[in-house]
Design a protein around this nucleic acid. Structure first.
Lengths: 203, 203
DNA sequence: TTACTCACTGAGTATACAGTCATTGAAGCC
DNA sequence: GGCTTCAATGACTGTATACTCAGTGAGTAA
């Protein structure tokens, strides 16, 4: 029942998505559909056989990317309250997709509104792991009594700030790879509650 | 000496810049030159009488904006080591220009390379005030022993994160006005060194 | 073998925009 | 008053892009 045809169709569809991922990562979201078609090795008209509009391709790609990223995050082993491990793992996942992720946050203004929901969904997934790791430490008081979401926003703000200014902090290189230690150490030093930590040491 | 002509020319030039500021603030940097001309009440061709390219208009506008902002920051009274005052004043200046400043940081990817230097220049000016306010506190130890630039990057990261996600944190409203207290309190709690502060209190 | 289906093609269409230029008329100069 | 200059105009050109569609040929079904 026309399996060969459907298979071929699905294959080109995925080649287009993979090409879009590569082209957008390298050139940003202003890249033209023709560039994606060229990268995928198909004609420019093929794009519109599979996707009614360019925006729908972007949304489809983002949906797939968001799924992948969230699955990777969910698959991270439970850090058991070790925040440093969690930060390392978070940065590790981002490094794997750094080029595209950076485009996402720097060019979010160019993307359709629905695309931004995907970004929020990614951060929500991260925040679940964060919450689990931070909760015990917040109860014992080794972490400061700042609302959880503000601690989380500070972390994301810091990481995104480095990604957005990558050409300042690490020109022609991976910012996260080069600065991951600085980022985690700084963040840990900020949230740690030295008063209580010292008290524990004294006991 | 053709004074009337030159005066008129300078006047339209400034009307164009003012219109560009308004249009870019409201519509973002994807707005067309014709929209700016319409807002300024001049023909679309007039734009190119005063600026060879649209990019040169953007650079001119940014130069003017950067100058204004930096002057406002430099004019801030010396906070005399009171960091909370400094943060308040910084946010106060940003609130005045929130719409345009938010466009700048969310759409920096759309701007010519030179435009990003202006942003760096603004942040450098802010950092000077920051340094002056933080230095005494870092010496006395009431602020944690984290490298100054990391403290500064954390602050900017947090503020920019809120601006970039304004539609999440304060839809159809000024994020900075609504959240300035949360932002400053969180940041102060993070950088304060409770151990030493408590010791002082005990004395 | 034959008729039909459909993924794929690429030239073509519509649109939006940056930037040009011949023209205009008011301002300046003698 | 007559000549010159030049800011301003808006129709025009060139280009880039999203999206369309009639045509093609391999795949499928009888």
């Amino acid at each position: 029942m026309s399996t060969k045809r459907k298979l071929q169709k699905e294959l080109t569809r995925e080649r287009i998505i993979a090409a879009a991922f590569k082209v957008y990562s390298e050139q940003g979201f202003t890249a033209a559909a023709s560039a994606i078609a060229h990268e995928a090795g198909v004609s420019q008209g093929s794009i519109f056989v599979h996707f009614p509009t360019v925006d729908s391709l972007v949304l489809c790609l983002l949906d797939s990317f968001s799924q992948d990223l969230r699955n990777e995050i969910l698959a991270l082993e439970d850090s058991g309250g070790d925040i440093e491990r969690l930060l390392d793992m978070h940065i590790g996942v981002l490094i794997k997709h750094e080029a595209f992720y950076t485009r996402l946050i720097t060019e979010a203004a160019l993307l359709p509104q629905e695309a931004k929901h995907e970004l929020v969904a990614i951060q929500s997934t991260v925040s679940i792991h964060f919450m689990q790791a931070l909760e015990p430490q917040m109860k014992t008081g080794t972490v400061k009594g700042i609302p959880f979401h503000m601690i989380f926003n500070t972390w994301l703000g810091l990481v995104h700030y480095y990604l957005m200014n990558a050409d300042l902090f690490a020109p022609h290189d991976s910012v996260l790879t080069r600065h991951k230690r600085t980022l985690t150490k700084t963040f840990l030093a900020l949230i740690e509650n030295r008063t209580l930590k010292n008290k524990e040491e004294q006991q």
